[in-house]
C-alpha cells in the first residue's frame, strides 16, 4: 500500500492525537481553572511588625521615598526579620506620583490595596520568570511561578510550607493581562489555600511607586 505525503501527514497528526489522548488519560490533572480570588483589603490578618498602619497611607503627597536597600529572605515571614524594611514616616508612601488607585482588572487589587496588604503582613508571591525575580521583586515576596510545580516541586512545596493555608496571599506578575499570577493562584487553590488575591498592578508599578523591593535569586526559600 502506497501512502502519499498528505496521508502520512494525517498519520502523524493521528499518532499525536492517540499519544496525546493516552497521555491525558494517564496524567489527567491538567486544568485551566483559575483560583477564586478576593479583592479588597477587608478581613486581612495584619502583621503589626510590617511597616506603618495601612490606614495611614495618604491619598496624595508630594514626598518621595527611596526603596530600601536590604535584601531579605524571599519567603514572607510573619516574624519581622532583622533586615526588614524600616518603618517609614506616614507621608513617605505616596507612590512617587504614581496613581495608586489606577484602574485594574475587575476582582484584582489596586496598587494602594496591594501595598496596604503588604504593610499588614500579607504573603506576597512573585509569579514571573526567575530572571525577572532575580533582577528585582517586591520585598519579602516568594518566587513561585505555576511551572515550578512541574519543574521543581520540592522548591514549590518549600515556599508553600512557609505559608499557612488561611494566610492572605497576594500574587503578582507584570500586570495587565498577565496570567502568571492567576495560574499560580489556581495551583495554590488546589492545595487548599483560601485567601488568594491578585495584584492587578504589575511589579513595575510597584517599583515606580517607590515601594520596597529586593533583588537576588531565590534567597531564603526554606521556611
Amino acid at each position: 500500500m502506497r501512502m502519499k505525503t498528505p496521508q502520512r501527514l494525517l498519520a502523524i497528526v493521528g499518532g499525536a492525537f492517540l499519544l496525546g489522548t493516552g497521555h491525558s488519560l494517564v496524567s489527567g490533572n491538567v486544568t485551566l481553572k483559575e483560583a477564586a480570588t478576593k479583592s479588597g483589603v477587608e478581613g486581612v490578618k495584619g502583621d503589626p511588625n510590617r511597616g506603618i498602619p495601612a490606614d495611614n497611607i495618604p491619598e496624595d503627597s508630594p514626598e518621595e521615598v527611596d526603596t530600601p536597600d536590604e535584601q531579605p529572605s524571599a519567603v514572607i515571614e510573619d516574624d519581622q526579620p532583622e533586615s526588614s524594611p524600616p518603618t517609614q514616616p506616614t507621608a513617605a508612601f505616596t507612590g512617587n506620583g504614581v496613581d495608586l488607585d489606577a484602574p485594574v482588572p475587575e476582582g484584582t487589587l489596586t496598587l494602594r490595596e496591594s501595598h496596604i496588604l503588604w504593610e499588614e503582613g500579607a504573603y506576597f508571591i512573585d509569579a514571573r520568570h526567575d530572571y525577572e525575580y532575580e533582577a528585582g521583586h517586591i520585598q519579602y515576596s516568594a518566587w513561585l511561578p505555576a511551572q515550578l510545580f512541574d519543574t521543581d516541586s520540592e522548591a514549590a512545596f518549600a515556599v508553600m510550607d512557609s505559608i499557612p493555608k488561611d494566610g492572605t496571599i497576594v500574587l503578582y506578575c507584570v500586570g495587565g493581562e498577565c496570567d502568571a499570577s492567576k495560574n499560580t493562584a489556581a495551583m495554590l487553590e488546589q492545595f487548599g489555600y483560601t485567601d488568594l488575591r491578585i495584584m492587578g498592578a504589575g511589579y513595575e508599578d510597584w517599583v515606580n511607586a517607590g515601594f520596597p523591593t529586593a533583588t537576588g535569586a531565590d534567597e531564603g526559600v526554606s521556611p
Binding site: 505525503t5 502523524i12 497528526v13 499518532g15 499525536a16 499519544l19 496525546g20 491538567v30
Partner: peptide, 24 residues
Amino acid sequence: AHMMPWAEMIAGVLLILGLWTRAA
C-alpha cells in the same frame, strides 16, 4: 497541550530517521 508535544516528538523522530521525511 497534550497533542502538540507528541506531534513535535513524532515529527522529530521521523526527521532524524529520515522516514516519511517530506511529511515530517
